[in-house]
Design a protein around this nucleic acid. Structure first.
Length: 822
RNA sequence: GGGGGCGUAGCCCAAUUGGCAGAGGCAGGGCGCUUAAACCGCCUCCAGUGAGGGUUCGAGUCCCUCCGCCCCUACCA
């Protein structure tokens, strides 16, 4: 495509200038109103792909727009630079993950520069920076001292073939190792946890205060999974002094309990199991233990329909409502980690229990009358209680209350709130992560590394293949250390931290990476927080956002971040995915479309414009054969703008007239439209509005009658300002051509519309007869009902259509429409 | 199984939030420019809104039912 200007040289000129003049370096004491714009911390996977391009196009638009609105905008960048891909690549290449990672960071950095996105590079953060690691470790130790970090046993994915621990993403869907193909086992290890569950209530409650997409909020609520119920005792039939404790949200269905179930991990299982039943119970427990999650769920694609495996323990418990004996089963559909690890089973009102009862031939007793015509097994809805003694006739709500009271006096029942949310397992048996700064001493136990000795850095000469544990565990030089307390020989923790810890506080460090000796100065950070606009992918809707929210709350509570708001991200925007032939575009799928070729044709500006224009920013983008043409079209738009600013084929007249006035009106209406659309994340329609305006202006200026020069000048200057956040290079270049002595385009203020020009003096009102459009009348937008009615009835065409018949009814909606019903 | 989203022209998408279905772009067609083509400029064809029902003077928009596609989640008692 032949272009009227040299895209590459224009773009590189401005990219260099933005770097050199530090336009987007921002000081913490800037007196202007503040705005913190942030794109999610990227993993440096190499040069940018279209997903990055889209993300940073949106982010840069926000930065430039808010800057033109007179704000002091904080726009930082950095890298989530620890993680498995670098470690795997290093193992494969026999090199060090740092070399690999540094190279990928450099590539991504040059990609965002080539896109023309601007950042305050002095604030750059990357996870494997020893300075950053030092403070990641400082935070870990502070959480430990506050009792928010603790050690416990937890299962890991163990590959017997590789003799190593696998991350979840290294386990294929069939439960085998992605590298060796061996069946992955579960193995228990002592690991570190953060007590995020202490914050479950607050994390749930504060969701209501966030300006986030509704679906992200819903996902977080579901993930936290608060549920209210009752915990109570089921006494053992042969020894009522002992009891099985269970949790239920439906105490009202207690008369329908026909059996009980314990999880395979339940501590009482051994006692409950009789000798006759021991072989089948043991078999079930063995299978549940060795089988991966995948195998447990592989038998069906729907949760309720899963095959319900279980075994009778040989024991019975007493239903506290009926005093009848019911059998106790062990089954893997009951989780050891939720509630008490045991349940009362009510097949008539719970689908899972129903499915199990069907398989194992257990009785079903309805306690809630299903609605007329109800077909199917379990009915979990509301209805009058039956077969339920003192609860008969009650609706669920009252029955719940009475049943809870009954359990409180008869079965040591207490009201209980359970959360689905688990504590955050932060230990990773990996090399390329931030080491956990802990020492284990035979005499002193768990000893934190003194703050002065931070950061704990991994040694470079580590072999990263097939060790039994963490790669660091076999490095004697690293592992052996003097106990910080008693100086006797001790051993370092060999695990590293989950990389989600790095992305849980980087946005605080951005706000103040300058104060020496601490992660950040809270008073400095408070000037910027919370983040005004956070932009990223929907894939982080749950974990990253939840962990970051937890971190900030915890940091405040343990005194590391006094005075900060308790929620980090005030406003969140999640962009749509890019997909190629239906599949998500990603590096692992190998279906990326590299941006480089477009830099040569339409430039970064054209590509940015495409991403803004292609559809609503929140929607997915389908990359098809037509996409190339659409991108070309975006480039053509910029070409047309360029030519017009050269006054090619433009005619002029002297006195301003109606045609000039009409164009000025169009211009000012476009200012309103583009501004509103940008504020409302409707970039696609704001670009369309600019295209429409260019069409109008260009037709006007190239008509025989031509344009009045001052008006054309005004129009073009405003258009360049409106387009500046979208296509920053070419607009800056054209601005400089037009104002060689003035300051640069990106230092100009955002255009303001003149209300007098925005207002329509006349507007078309539709007149319908029986809902059919019969006439259009030009009216003032301020017209009232009476005037609208008069105008409608006075219209010639309407008089003709009515032909004297009397209107039954008039629907008058000034100034838009009058509907006459006859 | 649960939760959420989306179906408008050949394609990507708009539609003042219940008021004339079309702003913008892509593709197609025509004309002009050109020795010719590309580029460029101008003009133009194209749907009654996935299906059915309801509310309303009026429904793409609100409410039911169904169909199709996508995303998230998964036995949390």
């Amino acid at each position: 495509m032949a272009r009227p200007f040299d895209v590459q040289s224009v773009e590189s000129k401005w990219q260099a200038r933005w770097l050199d003049d530090g336009s987007y370096e921002i000081e913490n004491d800037d007196p202007r109103e503040r705005f913190y714009a942030l794109c999610m911390y990227p993993y440096p996977s190499g040069t940018a792909h279209q997903g990055h391009i889209r993300n940073y196009t949106f982010g840069d638009l926000v930065v430039r727009y808010q800057t033109m609105r007179g704000k002091a905008v904080l726009s930082p960048f950095g890298f989530d630079s620890f993680g498995l891909p670098a470690e795997n690549a290093a193992i494969k290449a026999g090199s060090h993950p740092r070399l690999f990672t540094d190279a990928r960071m450099k590539e991504l950095k040059s990609s965002v520069r080539r896109l023309g996105a601007v950042y305050d590079w002095r604030r750059e953060v990357f996870s494997h920076d020893p300075q950053y690691m030092k403070y990641s470790q400082t935070i870990f130790l502070a959480l430990f001292k506050a009792g928010l970090a603790y050690r416990a046993e937890a299962p890991v994915n163990w590959c017997p073939g590789c003799a190593t621990v696998l991350a979840n993403e290294q386990v294929l869907t069939d439960g085998t190792c992605e590298r060796s193909g061996d069946l992955v086992e579960r193995k228990n290890l002592e690991q570190w946890f953060f007590k995020i569950t202490d914050y479950a209530d607050e994390l749930l409650r504060d969701i209501d205060t966030l300006d986030w997409p509704e679906r992200v909020k819903t996902m977080q609520r579901n993930w936290i999974g608060r549920s209210e119920g009752v915990e109570f005792d089921l006494p053992l039939a042969n020894d009522p002094s002992k009891a099985l404790r269970v949790f239920t949200t439906r105490p009202d269905t207690g008369y329908g309990v026909t059996y009980a179930v314990v999880a395979p991990e339940h501590p009482l299982l051994d006692q409950l199991t009789t000798e006759d039943e021991r072989p089948s119970v043991t078999a079930l427990v063995q299978r549940a233990k060795s089988a991966s999650e995948v195998e447990r769920t592989a038998s069906s694609d729907s949760g309720a329909g899963l095959e319900k495996r279980g075994a009778f323990t040989g024991s019975f418990v007493l239903n506290p409502f009926t005093n009848e004996q019911v059998p106790v089963y062990v089954a893997d559909y009951v989780l050891g980690t939720y509630g008490t690890g045991a349940i009362m089973a009510v097949p008539a009102e719970d689908e899972r229990d129903y499915a199990f009862a069907m398989v194992h031939g257990l009785p079903v007793v309805r306690t809630v009358e299903p609605p007329e015509g109800f077909e199917g097994g379990a009915f979990s809805g509301d209805g009058p209680h039956i077969n339920s003694g003192f609860l008969n006739g009650l609706q669920t709500k009252e029955a719940k209350t009475l049943a809870s009271d009954y359990l409180a006096t008869h079965a040591r029942g207490i009201k209980k709130v359970n959360f689905r949310l688990r504590d955050w397992l932060v230990s990773r048996q990996r090399f390329w992560g931030c080491p956990i700064p802990i020492v284990y001493c035979d005499d002193c136990g768990i000893v934190p590394v003194p703050l002065d000795d931070l950061p704990v850095l991994a040694p470079d000469d580590v072999t990263m293949d097939k060790s039994g544990q963490s790669p660091l565990a076999t490095h004697e030089g690293f592992r052996n250390v003097a106990c910080p307390k008693c100086a006797k020989p001790a051993r370092r923790e060999a695990d590293t931290m989950d990389t989600f810890t790095d992305s849980s506080w980087y946005f605080l460090r951005y706000a103040d990476p300058f104060t020496p000796g601490q992660p950040f100065d809270a008073a400095q950070v408070a000037k910027w927080m919370p983040v005004d606009q956070y932009i990223g992918g929907i894939e982080h809707a749950i974990l990253h956002l939840l962990y970051a929210r937890f971190y900030l709350k915890a940091l405040i509570d343990i005194g590391l971040a006094p005075g900060l708001p308790r929620e980090p991200f005030r406003r969140l925007f999640t962009q749509g995915m890019i997909r190629l032939e239906g599949a998500k575009m990603s590096k692992s799928k190998g279906n990326l479309i590299a941006p480089e070729k477009y830099y040569e044709t339409v430039g970064a500006d054209g590509l940015r414009l495409f991403h803004l224009f292609v559809g609503p920013p929140a929607d997915d983008v389908d990359w098809t054969e037509q996409t190339e043409d659409v991108i070309e079209g975006c480039g053509r738009f910029l070409d047309r703008l360029y030519r017009l600013t050269q006054y090619d084929e433009v005619n002029f007249h002297d006195q301003e007239d109606d045609s000039d006035f009409a164009v000025r009106q169009a211009l000012h209406r476009t200012i309103v439209k583009v501004t509103d659309d940008i504020e409302g994340w409707r970039y696609n329609t704001s670009v369309a509005a600019m295209m429409e305006l260019l069409n109008t202006v260009s037709k006007w200026a190239r008509s025989e009658h031509g344009a009045q020069r001052a008006v054309l000048d005004e129009v073009l200057d405003v258009m360049l300002r409106l387009l500046a956040p979208m296509a920053p290079h070419i607009t800056a270049e054209l601005w400089e051509q037009r104002h060689p002595q003035g300051s640069s385009l990106h230092r100009q203020s955002w255009p303001e519309a003149d209300p007098a020009l925005v207002k329509h003096e006349m507007i078309t009102m539709v007149v319908q007869v029986n809902g059919k459009v019969r006439a259009r009348v030009e009216v003032s937008p301020d017209i009232n009902e009476e005037q609208a009615e008069l105008a409608a009835l006075a219209d010639e065409e309407i008089v003709k259509v009515l032909a004297g018949s009397k209107p039954q009814r008039l629907v008058v909606r000034p100034p838009r429409l009058v509907n006459i019903i006859i």
